[in-house]
Design a protein around this nucleic acid. Structure first.
Lengths: 204, 204, 204, 204
DNA sequence: TTCTAATCGAGACGGTACGTCCCGTCTTGCC
DNA sequence: GGCAAGACGGGACGTACCGTCTCGATTAGAA
């Protein structure tokens, strides 16, 4: 959730000669108001006018920073991270799977995050800007699962011929489905059981 | 699911004596326009004014039938069915799974349907009326997968102690994830491979 | 206020063979409702839908009798008459003028009539049908004033060279102006005074 | 009347600091469109939506200036003036009357003005806001006629006992009646003749 | 410290959609 | 066939946001 990135649009824009930089307190007020409005009204109910108003800021200040809703969402989300924290090797396929699933669960456990992720998926195809923001995260998750599978191959638990794409889908999808789409809970037992079953599938 | 309901608002509504019935051609034009607009603008971008206009119909004709967007979506969806067609027994777990996956793929292959399903999932929590419309479909799918697993248990392919919920997630989620969330294709080989892996998982 | 005219649209329409004539009670209810609505909402605020509703009658029953608002107004007005009752000779110009002014006052004293007459004048130019209905009444009034002036000429009270148009304007306008436009009252003394002044003008 | 008012709603409204002022070109376009629509559709047929559209302006721009039709009419009329231009002394009752009648004719000669004035008279009683706007103009006209009569009394042309109200009606009404109600023209000869007859009446 | 240009809050602008109401026409089944 | 009931396409109502734009006033870096 850190925001120590290069901040490539904001906090620069200083003119060759003169002065004037965007004020960070304004940016922060807008960010806070944006996520509040998102959580309470949903992505599509989100009104930038309301965001600006409830941040106590003119609309121009908002539009000076981001061209539209999708861009604002993209930018803010990439700052916020949606980071699926990295996971240490557990020494076995099932152990690694369990750890990966717990990491996914950690993120999707928050109702706000769940809503945002669902909105994002629904909006992605229609709004290219969002797609470009989301894909790197999807890629990162995929890398992590790939690494996990590679280790399993090295250990001889999984056949080298396995289809990585399908395998990756098998790992991430069922938990997402249960938590986000069905809106059900997932306790420790469930995660463990799921890990066991996925391990079987991958070993097949 | 079947649509042999009593159709209780529309196509009747005739006063005790007298006449004035809603015209079915108008209802159909609105239905078509509604789904077109949904697919192209998303649930929240969906404008009933635009729907009426592009159906060549006055707004009043629309509002006479449905009080608002959510009600219209609910009603139309329950009419349309989102039918995952039933599937014949194939004689083996893997065969049944393959058949079930092909049935899912048949539905999600259409871009319009994919978009609508995603929006639905995103909107469900925010709009209770939609949730109530969708849940029966989810239950029906779950029943079908349950039946499939029961048959496998009877054949001795699967342990009777299996967790039905988790198993069902494992069947439906990966294909949904690939087609809808990732926006990738699924060919015959992929479906067969997926069926094989899921069968392993269930047998574990 | 009689309605013994030839009634050329209504009360016939009986089919060659069978049955069915327009019901006079419906026509009367519509007529009453029409004038009520006119007085309370003005000509242009007049809603035929409201007229039908408050007459307890279907809209079709109204539109079967009259094609639109202007035609309905025309027809009803010509039935009602707006009759400035004829006036007996008084033996002197001033006496005749007094009698004519009292006749005008008798009509314009009613608030409803005043409103309708004003609306009529305002709408006339925009709605030719109304103009054609009103003009005969204006002509009739003019005839009466002309007769009055002719008698005065025969008596030698007025020069034969007088401009009849201008004279007629001078008789009718001031009282109309005071009662209808300014919304003030006119008592007996006022009428007498006015008659005296107009007589002077005509004698000039 | 003069329009040197403080213009208290429009053309100011600037916030303590900052900016955002109503644009005068927009106000003017709306004003023009309003009177056009009034002349062609009548007061009650006047649609603010159409006014905004034909001014090439968003509806909000209109509603930001005026809360409703009556307020808009009142405000615009008081700006426009309906000015019956003042008239110099002519040295005789008949001369003054002639000048006053020419001034009235100058205004009522325009078809648009005639229509609006008639609607105004018809609408006044029903719409209090309009009445309050119109009455000052009526009062002003009356003052002017009163001054004219006072001069005639000073000259000894008219008896001091004359009823001012009735006299004033006698001056303004016949020309209004001919031009506006009857829709006839008034040439120089007619005005002169009328002035002569009214002078007789006043001297009586 | 002064200059100066981009920032700020405010909000007007042309639009589009909302959901309601009424227009005048058309259609249905009862009488 | 007249009747009531009311659905139909159309369009205006007044409100809320959209994203763009223009105002002075503020503010902070470069001179």
């Amino acid at each position: 959730m850190e925001r120590n990135r290069s901040d490539d649009k904001i906090d620069r824009a200083r003119s060759p000669s003169g002065a004037a930089v965007m004020r960070t307190d304004v940016t922060e007020a807008l960010t806070r108001a944006f996520f509040n409005d998102w959580a309470s009204a949903g992505y599509s109910g989100l009104s930038l006018e309301r965001v600006a108003r409830s941040a106590g800021v003119g609309k121009a200040a908002l539009y000076r920073r981001w061209p539209d809703k999708a861009a604002m969402a993209s930018d803010l989300l990439s700052r916020v991270g949606l980071t699926i924290t990295d996971v240490e090797e557990q020494g076995s396929l099932e152990g690694d799977l369990k750890a990966a699933l717990f990491a996914i669960r950690r993120v999707l456990r928050h109702r706000q995050v769940r809503r945002i992720v669902m909105d994002l998926h629904a909006e992605m195809e229609r709004t290219p800007a969002l797609g470009q923001t989301i894909r790197p995260f999807q890629r990162a998750r995929r890398e992590r699962i790939n690494a996990l599978i590679n280790r399993a191959i090295e250990r001889g638990e999984v056949a080298p011929s396995i289809d990585r794409e399908t395998a990756a889908d098998l790992v991430a999808a069922p938990l997402y489905w249960r938590l986000a789409v069905l809106g059900r809970r997932s306790d420790r037992t469930h995660v463990e059981q799921l890990a066991r079953m996925i391990a079987s599938a991958l070993r097949a």
